[in-house]
Nucleic acid binder design. Structure first.
Lengths: 356, 356
DNA sequence: CTGAAAGCGCTTACAG
DNA sequence: CTGAAAGCGCTTACAG
């Protein structure tokens, strides 16, 4: 027994109930004509079109999106799937914004979904959000967050087009058979370190946790620059840091106790740079007068520092846009070869590097 | 050149093409029976169900979500509409997370959309995102960001259920005929200021831009506490600040030049507190030894400070959850009276308040 | 240019 | 319990 929809008073007030048939009757035409007007088909006479548009306006008719989508065989909705992040960090939030902005400019929509999974569970045991279990609701997926091989395999198993934000892909090796967009970790620190060298620095350290593959790539970029100039690399990674502040304290200690003491430090990311900055200040060490500092990511922390942090800027919105663009290309050309686009980073000179 | 997934073999591999009719044929039953199994109707015999499930598995069948939704007359998708924010600030990002988390626990989905509009344009001129122009795609809206009266009227005009995050509603007065969820600005600063008084402070200033209604409410809470204890309120608002750092500099100046000098400052939000902290430090004024500081919002900045900021915590995820919950109630009970839920805040004691 | 009809992939009374 | 049929709100050949 289906319950009748609400009280009779609301019948006129709720335009949702008006269907294409009502409009056809009101305009005295067939339903096909209404559809043609809605889809701005050229084969409708001016007068008919005007009559139909007037009827649509008068009845407050809005076509049912679901019904259209069934026939169109495309929902024009993509899913932004954030995996294994307990909170939507500004970095990913801005990727999402880039996705949304590009998507909406093309009349597409973005569904936001979250997934938590263990990297150690077999692929088929990963419990995907319901939206990925159905089909027809979304056309494809933009995969962000931390991506382990099992998630990749799980997503592949549902045969839905997807694009992965590649920088936080962990533990996959060799060739990958999917579309990816990322930014250039290696060249980011390469450029930053070269800048320090140009500014006259010769004793340059690197502080960052290289157990993350992206920090490792940044470390590699740093080492390349160091080697190029025949300098010696100095790596600083505190043991068992107990949280953010403790991490800063321990690495500051290691830096300051080194003989000779580095004049500059390249950090694995802005957060590390921030923690270091706090600790150095606390110990009365001035940035950049006594130690120059360079970050990576250009997060909010960067401009909150005083002086503001010189860092490697990542164009987060552009990453989102490019993900969306690639996904659309994939949808239109399913047989196209897979590609991995790596977007350039940009070194931003602000206040934390001293010219020696 | 990487090769895409097999071309010819994909006919069987792509489950999207399998329909309920294929399954019916494979299982040797009618399509109605497949539907009943999918909807776990109890009126299917164990053997038939088993046969159908096996066929579904074998064919990799996943039902078409759009088709189901047409019949169900409910999409179980809500739209999170972020208005007039040029970027998804962590504050709103966490509201979104709360919405998503509650929604997904109930098998609902969240569509993320952005809107930019002028507060001065007539309501009917506001160009809503396409998803709000169709019907059937979403069941309702959660409205976040800065909300002016014209947007409210525009949303009301499309007759779609919605819930507004109320703290950033601007310029509406009197009774509001819609559902709202917000947090308690007034009691937040009331509690924070009382805490300062308990700690022995008698000269307490308030720094914040009261042209924003929410900061005005926070100012009111501060004044209530001040009046309760028969103290004198001291309001600090720098003229024409030129950005974040300049704002901090100017207000620090005003605070320090006052005779007698306040021993504590309640700020309109964490950002203000952070700017103030930076400037005070720069001028060699110690927090909290010489000046105590209290923030509002409990944003990321708060824990980035050293010592970490004592502030008024807002439960952002809970706001999102409550929005989603109210929207669902509204959907199930369209005739229910409108309500405005105001969630409590919580004062978090950290390191920036000195006991006198 | 336009209407009548078939059809998209489902759900759900209806009748056995 | 189950199948055949009607129907959800659209789009799109088809035939004039």
């Amino acid at each position: 027994m289906r319950k009748p929809r609400e009280a009779s008073a609301s019948v006129e007030a709720v335009p949702q109930k008006t269907t294409i048939r009502d409009v056809a009757r009101a305009a005295g035409v067939g339903i096909g004509t209404i559809s043609r007007v809605l889809n701005s088909s050229s084969q409708v006479s001016r007068e008919t079109r005007a009559r139909v548009l007037e009827a649509i306006r008068r009845l407050g008719f809005r076509p049912n999106a679901q019904a259209r989508r069934i026939l169109k065989r495309r929902s024009e909705i993509v899913c932004f799937l954030l995996s294994n992040r307990d909170f939507l960090h500004p970095f990913h939030a801005r990727i999402l914004q880039g996705v949304e902005s590009y998507a909406s400019s093309l009349k597409h929509h973005v569904l936001f979904a979250v997934l938590h999974y263990s990297p150690r569970v077999p692929a088929e045991k990963i419990d995907l959000p319901p939206v990925l279990q159905e089909h027809g609701l979304i056309d494809g997926i933009i995969l962000a967050g931390t991506i382990y091989p099992n998630l990749l395999r799980r997503i592949e198993s549902i045969h839905m087009p997807f694009v992965a934000f590649s920088n936080n892909v962990v533990g996959t090796d060799g060739e990958q058979h999917y579309d990816q967009v990322g930014f250039d970790d290696f060249n980011g620190t390469l450029q930053a370190t070269r800048y320090l060298i140009e500014q006259g620095h010769r004793l340059i350290g690197f502080a960052g946790d290289t157990s993350y593959p992206w920090i490792q790539r940044r470390f590699d970029g740093y080492r390349r620059a160091i080697r190029e100039s025949k300098l010696k690399s100095i790596s600083i990674l505190p043991q068992n840091p107990d949280g953010f502040v403790d991490f800063g304290r321990k690495s500051a200690l290691r830096i300051l106790s080194r003989q000779p003491r580095p004049t500059a430090v390249v950090t694995g990311n802005d957060e590390t740079a921030y923690a270091l900055w706090l600790s150095l200040r606390r110990q009365g060490v001035k940035v950049p007068e006594e130690i120059s500092l360079v970050g990576f990511d250009d997060r909010e922390e960067a401009v909150l520092m005083d002086p503001p942090l010189s860092t490697v800027r990542v164009h987060k919105e552009e990453i989102g846009e490019t993900c969306m663009k690639m996904l659309l290309e994939r949808l239109h050309h399913p047989q196209m070869a897979f590609s991995h686009r790596i977007l350039p980073t940009e070194f931003v000179v602000r206040g934390t590097v001293l010219h020696l």
